Amino acid sequence: MGEQVDGEQETGRAVLGRTLRYLRGNAGKSLGQLAEETGYDKSYLSRLEKGERLSKMTVMEDLDGYYKADDLLVSHWRAARLDAFKDQYKRFMRLESTARVMWKFTPAVPGLLQTEDFAREVLSGAQTTADGEDLVEERVAARVGRQYLLRQSPKPDVRIIVDECAFRRRAARAKTWTDQLLHLEAVGMWPNMALQVLPFSAGVHHHMTGSLTLLWQKDGSAVAYREGNGCSELVEDPDEVLRLRLSYDRLRDLALSPSDSLTFIRDELKEHES
């Protein structure tokens, strides 16, 4: 694109911004023209081009279509969103994006299944800085953007166990929680998804303080990722991965079946709406 870039220093977001500027210049458009023809705010587009803001993936899909760039911007966006995560989590996300089989346990609604409004409420918290709102929106975009991997081809085979406590800590806004439950119900019927609820009646268990993810690649290799109490760990040792798989098996034995879990979610939805 005619610019010399220090690849070791330039962030994914900067690369995306540079690509956006190049495509607009190549199309002979001003920011004002681009805003008028795409419907996006001029200042918003300017911040994207400067690498000051991470958009939602749908914005990049729209601009790819506008510039007839295939999925160039979407592919750059997928790299740029990693800027919002810590290094160890970036490696996990790369493995997650290529996994053919994925098992998860979470004590809360998992990020992969959160609606945008629910994710925003979870990530908001107390903001004490002027750029707090932008930071939240960037993290929401990064979180929701991860969900594309559930729709990629070939679709991974996914099993997610969610602790019942996730359903007892509802969103503050009634509509947000209704939409979240409806989304979980819909996801639970996907052919590549087994969604299970771990009820309180199962009693205490060994993953109450955090989440666990197990990933298998096409070649059969497996890793595990644990999060909890403010720390995280990517586990690659085969013996430790096997131990964690067996611990997951025990949780699965205690959880409701996928069909009973759907009934649980629907009952929760009826109770909430009433």
Rank of each mutant, 00 (worst) to 15 (best):
P258A: 01
K29P: 00
R169K: 15
N229Y: 15
G17D: 05
L242C: 05
Q127V: 09
T11A: 10
A166V: 02
S221D: 13
Y67R: 01
M189I: 02
M1P: 05
G111A: 05
L181R: 07
A35H: 08
A69M: 01
E133G: 08
D6Q: 08
H205T: 00
G39N: 07
H206M: 11
N229F: 14
E8M: 11
S259F: 03
L181E: 02
P238G: 15
Y67W: 00
A119M: 06
L150K: 07
R168G: 05
A222I: 03
N192G: 10
I160A: 15
D239L: 11
E8Y: 06
E61W: 02
R139L: 14
K56R: 14
R243S: 06
L184W: 02
H206A: 14
G132C: 09
W177M: 14
P154I: 03
L251K: 06
R21L: 00
D83G: 09
T98A: 09
D249W: 01
D179T: 04
A27P: 04
L269N: 13
E233F: 02
G39M: 01
A194T: 01
G51Y: 01
A171T: 02
D87N: 14
F264N: 05
S261R: 11
G188H: 00
R100S: 07
Q4V: 09
T128R: 13
I265M: 00
K90Y: 01
E121D: 04
S257E: 11
T11Y: 12
S247T: 06
E240W: 07
E37M: 09
L123Q: 10
Q147S: 07
A119R: 03
A108V: 12
A84C: 13
G2A: 12
E133S: 07
V136F: 11
S221N: 15
S153K: 12
P199A: 10
W190S: 11
W103A: 10
H76D: 05
E36I: 04
S75L: 15
Y40S: 06
R170Y: 03
E116V: 10
L34W: 00
V144G: 15
G2W: 09
Y248H: 06
Q127G: 13
W177A: 10
L254F: 09
L182P: 02
P110M: 13
E236G: 10
T128E: 15
D70T: 05
G230M: 05
V74T: 07
P191A: 08
T115E: 03
A126D: 07
Y67L: 02
Y225V: 08
E37H: 10
D260V: 06
M102I: 11
D117G: 05
D117E: 15
